[in-house]
């Protein structure tokens, strides 16, 4: 089911949680709402789920306005950040809950409920835990049970609030790959909220980057990483070096007072000046991290550190040591007018 959001606004007192949001979610896609805490992503998710009401704007499911529809009637599966499993029910009863509370005439018989619950538990590979209580499960297991419970009512839309937020790093990595595979199997329109860029880029079909109640950019993971639309997206996703044109970005000088954003891996290092706009720098630190080598350099004229990432092969072909005087030049950069979200050019 597709979701259309038009001019959506939400205030908490004088605080603008959502500021004129417009968004189209395609049927069957897995979408990430990415942003720092307080950016409004969770509010947006809760409004879609019917947990909150928007102050103004439209919310359509498959072209149909659902603002007036109660959360119970939206046919939306919601996975809560802290799972909200019913602590007094077994895993089986948790998953069966949505089936048991259906109105009498729609309710399946006990055998059918049993079959469906076990099917779902098998889907999340936890059928062997069916008689345990939530307190007896690990974080990752709770997460999967919460998902199975949400899927039991056969929702048309699945909403997940920081689904991996409460898990430790290793489990988180495994689970997000698992979620991606599961989505490829089920193809339910799904939206998940996260503050972890890696998570969003790895799992989602498309990423919505949010900041201060506004959408900064919508795009595929590749687009938001390789072609950030705003300085915020540049800073929030991946590492970036900033060069103020006036001081030390001669290659961007034509824009006047502006800032050039350059990814660490988009900088070339050379012993001789590549051209007359190359910057002379001194190597301050060299550190090999797995397959890449991180080099920190400083402009002669300032103490600001510029981060550069080289592949190991590239580094090995021309090794550097601390104290080397070299030149740098960006292969790729974007220039934004200082302080304004106004893109001027991209090289």
């Amino acid at each position: 089911m597709s979701i259309t959001i038009e001019n959506l606004n939400k205030n908490f007192g004088s605080y603008k949680a959502l500021d004129n949001i417009n968004l189209e979610v395609n049927s069957g896609e897995l979408l990430a709402l990415l942003g720092p805490s307080g950016c409004g992503k969770t509010s947006l998710l809760r409004i879609i789920g019917g947990m909150e009401l928007a102050d103004s704007g439209k919310l359509l499911f498959h072209g149909e306005d659902v603002q007036q529809r109660d959360a119970r009637e939206r046919n939306v599966g919601f996975v809560f950040q802290h799972y909200a499993l019913f602590r007094h029910m077994t895993v089986f009863e948790n998953v069966a809950f949505g089936l048991r509370v259906k109105p009498k005439k729609e309710r399946h018989n006990e055998a059918e409920i049993k079959r469906r619950v076990h099917e779902l538990l098998n889907l999340v590979q936890l059928d062997f835990l069916h008689d345990r209580y939530p307190a007896q499960l690990s974080g990752g297991q709770r997460q999967r049970i919460a998902l199975a419970r949400a899927l039991a009512v056969e929702p048309k839309i699945l909403l997940l609030d920081e689904p991996f937020g409460a898990l430790d790093a290793q489990v988180r990595k495994e689970l997000r790959r698992w979620l991606r595979r599961l989505h490829d199997e089920l193809h339910i329109t799904s939206i998940f909220v996260t503050h972890d860029q890696e998570e969003a880029l790895e799992v989602a079909d498309r990423v919505v980057v949010m900041n201060k109640g506004k959408i900064e950019q919508v795009g595929t993971p590749d687009e938001v990483y390789a072609a950030p639309a705003t300085p915020f997206v540049y800073k929030f996703i991946g590492n970036v070096n900033m060069f103020h044109s006036r001081d030390h970005a001669p290659w961007a000088a034509e824009h006047g007072d502006a800032v050039a954003y350059v990814r660490p891996h988009d900088i070339d290092i050379s012993r001789i000046a590549q051209d007359d706009t190359a910057l002379p720098v001194e190597v301050k630190l060299v550190r090999a991290i797995g397959s890449i080598v991180r080099v920190e350099v400083a402009l002669d004229s300032s103490s600001e550190i510029i981060q550069i990432e080289l592949s190991r092969e590239r580094f090995d072909s021309a090794p550097l040591v601390i104290g080397d005087k070299v030149f740098i030049r960006p292969r790729q950069f974007r220039v934004f007018e200082s302080g304004v979200l106004n893109e001027l050019s991209a090289a």
Partner: peptide
Amino acid sequence: KEEEEAAVSLGAS
């Protein structure tokens, strides 16, 4: 109130 919200989102009255 998360557990109650979960129940409502699963269709409970």
